[in-house]
Design a protein around this nucleic acid. Structure first.
Lengths: 252, 252
DNA sequence: CCGATTTTGTTCTCACGTTCACAAACTCCT
DNA sequence: AGGAGTTTGTGAACGTGAGAACAAAATCGG
């Protein structure tokens, strides 16, 4: 995900005590599963139990956990509370991370109201928007503040994570301001590819991309019989393409 | 050595005309990049141009496109409109997919208002909620309807995609109802692992997991100097693990 | 028509991720 | 105590994905 980080040809892919990226992405899932088990009063769970709760295969889960260390007891399983704490510590949610949300439209609103903000570990310290009509509005127990205050807020509250919920247009500029202010992790909901300097992590959440991926598979399901398509248009058509009015060619 | 120049019929790793999943996930990004170029009045683009716009490496982009066919002209590049249409057709967004959104809380509201709903290709046909207080509410040009109407709506509008924006609790039940009604693709925003029968596709969007992944990397950045942590607790403590007061209640 | 130039499409190689399968380690029962 | 039964942790095999490099195909200038 982070394109930068110039990697030497011979350098180890897995950094010093580094956990594979695929595993990192699953740790939060395990954490949630453990919390659920804990809430159900279950004190011990086998890798099979945990894997089922997390929706993965048990061998994968064991291998993932083995990167953290050797918690767990052979012949018995994992102590739920103990493992939960270890994973939480490894992820870093035993401490609180300050978060700002920029762009208080529909989605920003929704995230601001998202009580609990996932699990603990994150604290929204400011809601920012450049629109004067929004500034001052109360959302839950917070007030929307002017985007111009960004730098002061980031410095004062040691903000390291920024969430971008603006439209596509201003997203890159917002991103640049966040980075300049000292934010080093960004969660981007705007439908654009943001570019950031090395050392800044970006993750992207994109509704329309998810839907399109579903559409692709959906199309293959329904279109399994009718594979007559692929009209094999002349690949070289002098540049002039006359695009059959999107939706014409394929009969449903 | 020319061992496998021709494809053996015995080892078709990739299904007939199947596109690798990683490539499928990038096609929507390319589609968006092409649309942006098109809107800028650019008629032709090289793989390098496109790759930059999409935020990937050009070799990867060319390989991805090669799975679709041989659009593009050597020495010239790709015709933007033509390629855009081909990708749109491959993804399946040249036709419209009917979508229902279940759970009209903060997030459901936001998605319902998300004008344009990504790119074209998707049509929200209903907003559903089980809460009588919400049923009847107008959102944009739509009205929230009772979840009980699900089956009728799915049948009437040939709905194949369902979006779940309920809390975690009712999500699995909503999911089961969707599947039973005939929905075969689900986009899940609820923080649970849903289980579905084979043939149904699920994609998950999870804010708190994304934040936790960022937190992990953030922790590694700041903790690079202070690596004094990791107390290296005795991994083997006679099976009796006495967990440093994280949550206590083991009995119950 | 021919050679220089550009850019695609594809092959090759390496790294990463997943799954299997099994030895090691622990509990329980006799 | 010892053997049977469980379950973890991990080595090895396999499959997928990424990137470098290059041959093939097109344009352009003379």
């Amino acid at each position: 995900m982070t394109p930068a980080r110039s990697r030497r040809p011979g350098a180890p892919t897995r950094t010093e005590r580094g956990i594979p990226e695929a595993t990192v992405a699953r740790l939060p899932v395990y954490l949630r599963a453990l919390t659920a088990l804990s809430d159900s009063g279950i004190a011990t769970a086998s890798s099979e139990d945990l894997a089922t709760a997390a929706g993965v295969n048990s061998a994968k889960l064991r291998k993932d956990l083995s990167y953290l260390g050797s918690y767990g007891t052979r012949g018995v399983g994992y102590d739920v509370e103990y493992l939960r704490y270890q994973i939480a510590r490894e992820i870093g949610v035993t401490q609180d991370w300050a978060v700002v949300i920029v762009g208080i439209g529909n989605l920003g609103h929704a995230l601001a109201n998202y009580s609990g903000f996932g699990t603990r570990g994150f604290r929204i310290v400011a809601l920012l928007d450049a629109d004067p009509k929004l500034v001052g509005e109360r959302i839950g127990d917070m007030v929307v503040r002017d985007f111009a205050e960004l730098e002061a807020i980031v410095a004062a509250d040691r903000v390291s994570i920024g969430v971008i919920t603006t439209p596509a247009g201003p997203a890159q500029e917002v991103c640049d301001r966040l980075v300049a202010a000292g934010v080093t992790s960004i969660l981007n909901f705007a439908p654009v590819v943001l570019s950031v300097p090395a050392g800044v992590d970006i993750r992207k959440v994109d509704l329309s991309i998810e839907l399109q991926i579903l559409a692709y598979h959906e199309q293959r399901k329904s279109g399994e019989a009718a594979l007559t398509e692929v009209p094999e248009l002349p690949a070289t058509m002098n540049g002039q393409i006359d695009l059959p009015s999107v939706g014409g060619g394929v009969g449903a």
